[in-house]
Design a protein around this nucleic acid. Sequence first.
DNA 1: TTTTTTATTTAGACAATAGTAAAATAATTC
DNA 2: GAATTATTTTACTATTGTCTAAATAAAAAA
Lengths: 217, 217
Amino acid sequence: MLSQAVQDYLKTIYKLEVKGPVSTTRIAKELSISGASVTGMLKRLSTMSLVDYNSYKGVKLTESGRKFALEIIRNHRLLELYLKEMIGFPLEKVHEEACRLEHYVSEEFISRIDELLGFPHFDPHGHPIPTDSGDIPELEKTPLSEFDPGENVIIKRIADTDAEMLAYFEKMKLVPGAKIKILEKAPFNGPITIEHLGNKEIVGNEIARNIFVSVAG
Amino acid sequence: MLSQAVQDYLKTIYKLEVKGPVSTTRIAKELSISGASVTGMLKRLSTMSLVDYNSYKGVKLTESGRKFALEIIRNHRLLELYLKEMIGFPLEKVHEEACRLEHYVSEEFISRIDELLGFPHFDPHGHPIPTDSGDIPELEKTPLSEFDPGENVIIKRIADTDAEMLAYFEKMKLVPGAKIKILEKAPFNGPITIEHLGNKEIVGNEIARNIFVSVAG
DNA sequence: TTTTTTATTTAGACAATAGTAAAATAATTC
DNA sequence: GAATTATTTTACTATTGTCTAAATAAAAAA
């Protein structure tokens, strides 16, 4: 089995690749470790044929590395949904539990919960769940903060990096699927007034930048 | 968090304590490692106050060590039952999966599945599940092989050490709860003829020694 | 009780994993 | 071309878990 650290590197590189070339420093920042440690690990990953690595040129996942990365992400997201839907975990706690278990559940376990959940496409935060063959649905990228008053939108995805923010989302029922009308938008990155579940609510810009929506159709 | 190895030692010591004083050699045999390795680990466990260890005098779990051991065993057994009942794992595969996950699931996760299962007292093999406060029901100790023809018994527990044997138990529906009548018993540890689910069946002595029963009442 | 055997511990070592700081070097930007 | 930034190299640390061989203690046998 790949060690937990190796799995975490693969996951991280995968996520960084989406947003451009992956440098040593970006990985180091993401994982809060020194650059030297990253260089060391990249060499190891390279000997394991999990990445293509050339000194000073950045790193890319190999076919095999990408396969593992997607498997881990799939495990994570299915676990999150599973913990929420079938175990009854509160939204802000699913991430931590999934982060631990994602490395240890068997393929068999994952494919069973996939089936029990009805082969879902998105996790509780709206992130797409890769299939077991590695296909991955498109993910919604436009934050609520970029829409204008008058528009009706549907929440597609919420950021899951901050447990406190997640708890707030959950409390406010600002979760994937929720329908929102934008009423007002204060200038200079000010708060946004929305109509949500029949109520008028005001959310800060910080929040609005972490809610990804699409136009209601 | 305690490392997986530490957790496995605690579990092993706990299980050995039931059958008498725990020596270095017994642990070494159980875990298939050298005695020297065990001595080393016992010293570490001792500095962690998980065991009382005196050179040449064997080892005992401390209050704290026993607490951890019971927690791991509880995790394992609840996971087994959960995997079988709610995830639909076949009996012979639950052990391996539970062995991995038992070290990584949170208390919260365990208490949720405990609740979902209706606070059960026994795992799918009939082993008692410790409560979260560490109480543990008595376990049935008399093997089928010690009963005589004519007796009606109920399976209380089956050995879970051998996955192949478990698959056989499952195929034959020789699982906890099953009612059996003993018809014949061949001498010199020969096979036993039983009536089970209306059919006459013959089980070998090896099997009969791994099925634990009590008189039907 | 002495001897032998067995159990256990000590000593010394290894390998894998994952990290660090400081110095050197390469790449990029000014 | 010089200065800055990024990256790598070097040399080290720490932990974890294991091993073999030699020494020693305890138990069993003579």
